[in-house]
Design a protein around this nucleic acid. Structure first.
Lengths: 85, 85, 85, 85
DNA sequence: TCAGATAAAATCGCGC
DNA sequence: GCGCGATTTTATCTGA
């Protein structure tokens, strides 16, 4: 950016504000990603197998999702036989 | 898994701790992802085109040189198959 | 699931049949997706840039008018936040 | 395309060939997607709840994936303690 | 450092 | 027309 941004219009300023908010959130996300890397690096330093840890985390996540979806399934059934709303 | 997880050993406890730290970070990331969605939803509510905003953000994040190079390669490919007269 | 699926009823059998037909179709779709990957892999082996090829395919599939409109809106947004001098 | 494609170069012809192969595969995929819609429409016509059918299919898919991943997990453990290659 | 694999994001399209 | 689910694309990460 060699020139000052010409956000002279109201809409331009508002748009830029939205964009910058999103960019800020994205940076925080990236930072958290780096934190994850650090933690896994630390685990590796203690002799743990990072690949296995990732797999465990993934499987635990699947369990959670599956439990949620089974509940949704039940709700769906109940809706469909007129037990809800 | 018929047995409770073996968090009784020292290594087991340490491993679980690493796993939970990562999971916590992942949740925060997910939460930020939801925040992004909220912001974009708000922008949409004000009449902005979310798809375009995303594209702008993406372009702002890319290196200008790299962007140009990719565009040139794209043009080259399109010329080579007769897409550009 | 402690009980076997109730495919003993007529409706249950019919339902299962629908489900399996859809699953079969989904597998075929997946298989075609793998074929696409193979072709692109082959192209890559010949020195082509897969990412660019994907983009070309995408552009060929888009309506020219719609494409222009989106580009214009993008320019408009970028101007309004001062990205285009 | 008002002009004949100028795929005069060897590379251009090869590139176009790859592109057309992918496009053909994509069409087949799309066609299968339509078939899925037809099957679900038929199920709906017989009084079944399409949303539930989709959910069942999704859960069955998750089961399959989870089973596979648990196996991979075992393999990983065994590798990590030196039981495999 | 790069290819291949894996996971995350963005886009697309249906159904309500 | 909007949210949700599915698919596709992008980015990250690991291993050679």
């Amino acid at each position: 950016m060699t020139k000052p941004a010409q956000t002279n219009t109201v809409a331009g300023k508002e748009l830029l504000s939205f964009i910058e908010r999103v960019e800020r959130l994205n940076e925080e996300k990236k930072s958290l990603g780096d934190d994850v890397k650090d933690v896994l690096g630390e685990a590796k330093g203690k002799g743990f197998d990072v690949k296995i840890i990732r797999k465990v985390i993934s499987l635990r996540g699947q369990d959670r999702v599956k439990r949620q979806e089974e509940q949704e399934m039940l709700d769906l059934y109940m809706q469909s036989i007129g037990m809800m709303g």
